[in-house]
Design a protein around this nucleic acid. Structure first.
Lengths: 229, 229
DNA sequence: GAATGTATGTTGAATTTTCAACAAAACGGA
DNA sequence: TCCGTTTTGTTGAAAATTCAACATACATTC
């Protein structure tokens, strides 16, 4: 099923991306080569609309999208293919499944643009190698940190969308942003439609609610800039 | 702020709990003592309604609730104190914050019954000790697995409650259960009120929807036993 | 077995969201 | 500046949820 063309060497072209990846945080670029070797990293190319992982594949590998774009998909209960998340260059995918010891992937990953992917066998990360290399140790720690941060973000979103009304969801989101950024004026990384999707509410209803809150003197906003009053 | 009465020795009474904890999976009981020593574990007692962690405390420690009961709390945007999760003996808490490198806890943890807690400094877990003990390595791996599993569970719930209608939420939940248990007949671990809370819907509306689905021949159920048709 | 309390089901009114359609504003390029 | 496009705001009707109140079923205790 998996057809590895390139093992080991000649991965320097990925280094700029890896340097930015939290998975390689605190790891020196000079260690990248021996490290990828030690981890048995496999580089793979995929063309637009090719399948990277299929639902049901063993969840042994985590992927790093080095170039191009891809998406994680799932079949929902009605049989619709739904997008779980969109991936851009530098992003990690399938790492939770690989680290959680899940047998088989419950999702598929498909290239939406031609792309290059680095695949790492999760067992080779978590089972520190015989030479007990320091960077190996660091990578496990990075993985733990990434996963823990993801878990916190998911928890925050769950807490926000668990509110029942548009107003409560919006206010929960905005006050969380204000708390995290430690200021009552901040910019949200969404346009209206994206914010509505994030909050799981209707866009027009969201606009209406924002207007109402403005009239009530609860907040001000201009486009994506919000101020809580 | 933290007042450690007991360091190191005499923690044998916790071993039965620790043996069951996924944090100690694959670690032999004979290693527990040197391990807790190496990790600088602190045992603490709290009386009912005492505070274990306060919002704003440094997020350095993860906790293991060894006996009694506790809850994780948060102040929501309206100023209400809300329960994030209930903890029973054996459960881990604050581990995501400690592993994610968060500066300060965004939640409080309060004893709801008299309880005993084991506190572990997360840095001493993630920075493998000088003697590079094998169990230390195993514990990092366990933490990673626990965190990844938690992240998957949170993602699943987010996917379920991101549906807009009671019917869609319920069906998404039930089909996920059926997929995971690999059978169309299964028991859900909730009564109606708990299921409604999990799905973030109104209990009476949930009952009504279940009746409707039964009449439509989509499912059968008796109490918490469901069958998808 | 009667009584009590809890869990679940049912119903209609009030509230809220969603949906569709359109208006207004902002943006970018020719 | 003009024009076409995209984003955002507004509105009313349809649909769904929530809420409250009550009915029924189930379980436990006395």
């Amino acid at each position: 099923m998996l057809n590895f063309q390139q093992n080991g060497g000649n991965m320097e072209r990925f280094f700029p991306i890896l340097k930015e990846s939290p998975l390689f945080a605190e790891i020196k670029e000079q260690d990248f080569s021996p490290m990828l070797e030690c981890l048995g990293a496999k580089a793979q190319r995929y063309q637009r609309s090719e399948t990277i992982f299929s639902e049901g594949d063993p969840a042994a590998y985590l992927g790093i999208l080095c170039s191009g774009a891809a998406q994680v998909e799932r079949i929902d209960y009605k049989g619709n293919r739904t997008i779980v998340s969109e991936l851009t260059a530098g992003e990690l995918f399938a790492e939770s499944f690989a680290c959680a010891g899940v047998e088989r992937l419950p999702v598929s990953v498909t290239a939406t643009e031609d792309c290059e992917v680095l695949l790492l066998d999760c067992r080779r990360i978590t089972q520190a190698c015989c030479n007990a290399c320091a960077f190996h140790q660091q990578m496990i720690y990075n993985l733990l940190k990434i996963t823990a941060q993801k878990s916190i973000r998911l928890h925050q979103r769950a807490e926000i969308i668990s509110h029942r009304t548009t107003r409560d969801k919006l206010m929960a989101y905005l006050t969380l942003q204000a708390t995290q950024k430690n200021t009552s004026r901040f910019t949200v990384p969404f346009d209206r439609q994206e914010l509505a999707d994030y909050l799981e509410v209707d866009r027009s209803g969201l606009s209406a609610e924002i207007s109402k809150l403005r009239k009530e003197g609860v907040l001000n906003c201009r486009k994506s800039e919000f101020e809580l009053l």
